[in-house]
């Protein structure tokens, strides 16, 4: 294995790890369910993709490589389906998204990010 692939794989793993943490921080910081869902989808797409591609570059055999590709395709196919099902169920059960008034913005900082129930 050449040095270039190794360094590239390390960079992808670190960046993927950072995106994972970002997604979870967003999950804690955002003010309501629907905005939190957008934060979660960061981890589902690019973070998963980067970490799995980083592992692919270090795969010892072609079988391992193929299995990683299979996992990536599976995650990318199912995560929007699960997200859509979740959003639709929440909306139909009467959960209303937090929306700003005309031209206004939601100031989300005063709310406690990880407050009690």
């Amino acid at each position: 294995m050449s040095m270039v692939t190794t360094y590239l794989s390390w960079a992808l793993l670190v960046l993927g790890g950072f995106l994972c943490v970002s997604g979870s921080v967003g999950l804690l910081r955002f003010p309501d369910f629907f905005t939190r869902m957008h934060a979660a989808s960061v981890t589902d797409t690019l973070a998963t993709g980067m970490i799995l591609v980083g592992l692919m570059l270090q795969a010892p055999t072609w079988i391992v490589f193929g299995k990683l590709v299979m996992i990536l395709v599976f995650v990318l196919l199912t995560s929007p389906t699960a997200g859509h099902a979740l959003a639709k169920a929440a909306l139909h059960s009467g959960l209303k998204p937090l929306l700003p008034g005309k031209g206004g913005k939601i100031d989300a900082d005063p709310r406690p990010s990880a407050g009690g129930v």
Binding site: S22, G23, G26, R29, P31, T35, P97, I106, D107, A108
Partner: peptide
């Protein structure tokens, strides 16, 4: 598109003063 919108959302997550304009 995926990479572009990921950058946008991640920068929103890490911004100091969180101000959002969600829409349905």
């Amino acid at each position: 598109e995926l990479v572009m919108s990921n950058i946008k959302v991640v920068s929103t997550i890490w911004q100091g003063h969180l101000q959002l304009q969600p829409a349905l």
